[in-house]
Design a protein around this nucleic acid. Structure first.
Length: 241
DNA sequence: GCGACAG
DNA sequence: ATCTTGTCGC
């Protein structure tokens, strides 16, 4: 059994969940339209005991990508385990197509976990996406895991500015629908953009994210995953040059 | 054509 | 996302 703090190097550039052939942007968008049919915004069966966070970073040349996941107990917020993997970057960044770049490496990292979390926070949008399939939703479908999108900025939609106080929130509207919410996780800092990914609802999102805070703007599972992915990138840099 | 645009 | 200097606040 791996211990918290360990991380792993592993080639994860092959076997993207959408197939062997490299996808073009039009094909990727078409695939999103198909996969969106599988998104289910149902409540969590119970209060989660394990909450994970998933984040990915690329190297400067956009050749490699590093994905990490960190799992904490909830609501105690004690680190249970974490995993990180590296791979070839499978897709360029394109607005609305982020999941084709990051979902494979994040899925690979999650599969290294000894136990799946009850909820996974993902650094990106859930259904607040042009085709209803942001990174959190796509990853949730791939892993069949409850996911919540926790983005640091807005992709689409309109929302009022939440009050400066911690916990203030406003609805994120798009096409006459509430697709997410804007949440002030710390007094006076830029708010986060939450939207359900898969097998979870917007209503439970606020309490869960607020319950994962430890005095910073980002919830702990995401902070930890961010740190770990960067740590793996630095490690791989030191091996190469 | 113009502006917007997760990471 | 990355690059990048100093700067402000705890």
């Amino acid at each position: 059994m791996k211990q918290a703090g360990d991380f792993y190097l592993e080639a994860a550039g092959e076997g993207e969940p959408w197939g062997e052939r490299p996808l073009g942007a039009p094909e990727a968008r078409a695939l999103q339209e198909v996969l969106r049919q599988r998104v289910r915004l149902t409540p969590l069966p119970r209060r989660p005991r394990l909450v994970g966070g998933a984040d990915a970073v690329c190297d400067r040349e956009e050749r490699l990508i590093f994905g990490a996941v960190a799992v904490f107990t909830y609501p105690e917020l004690e680190l249970v385990e974490e995993a990180a993997v590296s791979g070839l970057c499978p897709f360029p960044y394109r607005t609305g197509l982020l999941s084709f770049r990051e979902a494979p490496i994040l899925a690979a990292a999650c599969r290294r976990l000894g136990r799946a979390p009850d909820l996974l926070l993902v650094d990106g949008q859930g259904v607040a996406h042009p085709r209803g399939l942001g990174l959190a939703s796509h990853l949730g479908i791939l892993l069949d895991l409850p996911t919540l999108g926790v983005a640091k900025s807005r992709l689409l939609g309109e929302a009022g500015e939440p009050d400066a106080a911690q916990g203030s929130q406003t609805a994120l509207m798009w096409q006459e629908q509430v697709v997410g919410l804007v949440l002030r996780t710390r007094t006076g800092v830029k708010p986060l953009y939450l939207s359900p990914g898969h097998r979870c609802t917007l209503e439970e999102a606020v309490d869960l994210v607020m319950g994962c805070l430890k005095g910073f703007r980002l919830p702990e599972p995401l902070r930890r995953a961010d740190r770990l992915s960067r740590k793996l990138r630095a490690h791989c840099r030191s091996l190469t040059g």
